[in-house]
Computed example of a mutant assay.
Amino acid sequence: MSRYRLYPEVLFPVPYLDCLAAAKHFLSPAVLEKYLIDPDRVAVAGDSAGGNLAAAVAQAISVDESMAVKFSVQALIYPALQALDFNTPSYMQNQHMPILRRHTMVQFWLQYLGADLSLLPQLIVNNHSTSQHSGIPPELRSRIDWSALLPQKFKKNYKPIMVEKGSQEILKKVPGFLDVRAAPLLAGPEVLAKCPRAYILTCEFDVLRDDGLMYAQRLQDAGLSVTNEHYEEGFHGSFSFIFWPTDFAVGKKSVRAYINWLQKNL
């Protein structure tokens, strides 16, 4: 994505709005003509937090009837897509895995949404997404229900953690948890159906693995063409570890596959 403003200078939704503004500018007929860009071959892409923003921007552009040109491809590299369940199988399996531990990811969400970091212990045990919270109806919960969206090999023996009472005040204090601009996985099927075809890279040893896998499934359910490249030996950030002395075979392999996919699909 573009050089959007970052925490701590700004909080959500400013980074998202920066990226959306940049996307709209780039997709304008005047800019496309100036740089001789084929309007049928424009992609939006990002990794990790950038993957979050790329997915959110792709959704916004897709449903914006004022946009004559839209993205033809969205490429998401281990994206962060939801903040209601920090006990998915991948969050549990990889909670202590470098370079992105579960506590660190929860902290990042709190910082991005401008929330008090003292809430972290409650988020770790899903106290912010209590089953009795009226702001999370069953239909909305189904959009992040990993027990239904993940293949069995990823679910393993993990069980959903659904707190009955918890703290209903957290979502009132931090509404960003339920904002699709921050959590693209919460978008409705009518929005996903209008999105561009997708490339989603996921890694086995990554707390964000299940976010990407669930999004891939939901996009497919909405009728989209989705390529999900999953790396059994991959970890969060491995896509960037391709240069000596921190070069990994999985990093080089994933970059080659990504470029190959772009050449064939963009």
Rank of each mutant, 00 (worst) to 15 (best):
46 G>Q: 10
12 F>P: 04
31 V>H: 03
41 R>A: 14
20 L>F: 00
19 C>W: 00
47 D>Q: 14
35 Y>C: 02
39 P>C: 14
43 A>E: 04
22 A>H: 05
46 G>L: 08
29 P>L: 05
21 A>Q: 10
32 L>S: 04
12 F>G: 03
23 A>W: 00
11 L>Y: 10
14 V>F: 00
46 G>T: 07
47 D>I: 03
44 V>H: 08
38 D>N: 15
25 H>L: 13
23 A>C: 11
15 P>R: 04
33 E>K: 15
47 D>F: 01
19 C>E: 03
15 P>I: 10
34 K>I: 08
27 L>V: 12
26 F>D: 00
26 F>V: 15
23 A>P: 01
11 L>V: 15
36 L>Q: 14
20 L>V: 04
15 P>A: 06
34 K>N: 07
37 I>T: 13
30 A>G: 09
24 K>S: 05
24 K>M: 12
13 P>Y: 01
35 Y>G: 05
33 E>A: 15
12 F>E: 04
15 P>M: 08
41 R>M: 12
32 L>W: 03
25 H>F: 14
47 D>R: 13
12 F>D: 02
17 L>T: 06
39 P>D: 07
34 K>Y: 03
33 E>F: 10
39 P>N: 06
32 L>P: 08
15 P>N: 05
39 P>T: 12
30 A>V: 15
35 Y>K: 04
13 P>G: 03
47 D>H: 09
14 V>N: 06
28 S>D: 07
13 P>K: 01
46 G>N: 09
23 A>Q: 05
17 L>C: 07
39 P>Y: 00
15 P>H: 01
33 E>V: 14
32 L>Q: 08
37 I>E: 06
37 I>F: 11
38 D>W: 09
45 A>L: 08
46 G>D: 12
47 D>Y: 02
46 G>H: 08
34 K>T: 10
38 D>R: 13
36 L>F: 11
31 V>W: 01
17 L>K: 11
14 V>P: 03
31 V>I: 14
38 D>M: 12
37 I>D: 07
29 P>M: 06
25 H>P: 02
31 V>K: 03
21 A>W: 01
30 A>T: 15
33 E>M: 13
23 A>K: 12
38 D>C: 14
